[in-house]
Simulated assay, not measured.
Amino acid sequence: MDYDLAYANADFIPNATAYPPRWAREAEEFRAARKDHTRLGLSYGDTPREAFDLFLPDGDPRGLVVFVHGGYWLAFGREDWSGFAAGPVARGWAVAMPSYPLAPKARLRDITRAVARAVARAAREVEGPVVLAGHSAGGHLVARMNCSDALLPEVAARRLRRIVAISPLADLRPLTHTRMNADLRLDAAEAQAESPVLGTPRHEIATLVWVGAEERPAFLDQAIWLTEAWDEARLHIAPGRHHFDVLDPLKYAESPMVDALLAD
């Protein structure tokens, strides 16, 4: 099996290079439109990447969504994704979007713990239930928050209503066979320890695994593996969506994804 080909998303998405600039443009536009309801660069750690942006609704927040971005733990930051806060914010929820340390400077175990600190810190800013959403590598990271060894403080874990893992990487062992592992530096032990499917004791938080029907077979497999591994997980396969546009419904208040994210 060619693992590099199996996990190459952009090579199989028409006009894939147009997506990141569009995300960045929409993010800037959203921040400008919501500048009076936005708090940027709130720190949760000692490095510049350990910070989050907080987008507030017009009234008192009904709760908090924390969205964790993807990029194979190697790329992007919070400033690229602001536009995807639009749907939950329009429904009266606050949205926190953290950056986190990236590989190769950071190991995945350190990234996991950074996200746990980000969730805990953001939860101190907003009262009410907390929902986690993440895409791709971010889907892996929010799924890890269901695992007790991720070191999410119990005071934050008790407030978690739901995890929505969008196109997540749930078993990291295949990635040890890819060229990107030169930067990820996953060995067998860390790949197992950081894989949500591999039996780490869990908080048993309701989890929705959302994946596009047109994604690479490897990502459909990853979604299915997580659903099969966790009794608390349910699978949704979105018709006609690939790895990049699977996120688009987050921008729309009445979309099925936002409905599922914020359901009571």
Rank of each mutant, 00 (worst) to 15 (best):
M1F: 12
Y3A: 15
L5Y: 09
L5R: 14
D11E: 03
I13T: 06
N15P: 02
T17K: 13
R22P: 00
R25E: 13
E26L: 14
H37I: 01
Y44K: 13
G45Q: 00
T47K: 03
R49T: 14
E50K: 14
F52M: 13
D53C: 04
D53Y: 06
L56C: 09
D58W: 07
G59A: 06
G63D: 09
V66T: 00
W73Y: 12
F76D: 03
R78I: 03
D80E: 14
G87C: 11
V95I: 13
L102C: 03
A103T: 13
A106P: 05
R107G: 10
A116M: 03
A118R: 01
A122V: 08
R124F: 04
V126R: 01
L132M: 08
G138W: 05
G139M: 10
H140M: 07
H140V: 06
R144G: 03
S148K: 14
S148P: 05
V155D: 15
R161C: 05
R162G: 07
R162A: 13
I163Q: 02
S167M: 02
L172P: 10
R173V: 13
P174F: 00
R179K: 15
M180D: 12
M180F: 08
M180W: 12
M180T: 08
D187A: 06
E190Y: 06
Q192I: 15
E194V: 02
V197E: 11
H203P: 03
I205G: 00
V209K: 02
W210N: 08
W210L: 14
W210P: 10
V211S: 13
R216I: 02
D221W: 10
W230S: 08
A233W: 11
L235I: 05
F244P: 00
V246S: 04
L247K: 01
D248H: 12
P249M: 14
L250N: 08
A253K: 05
V258H: 04
L262R: 01
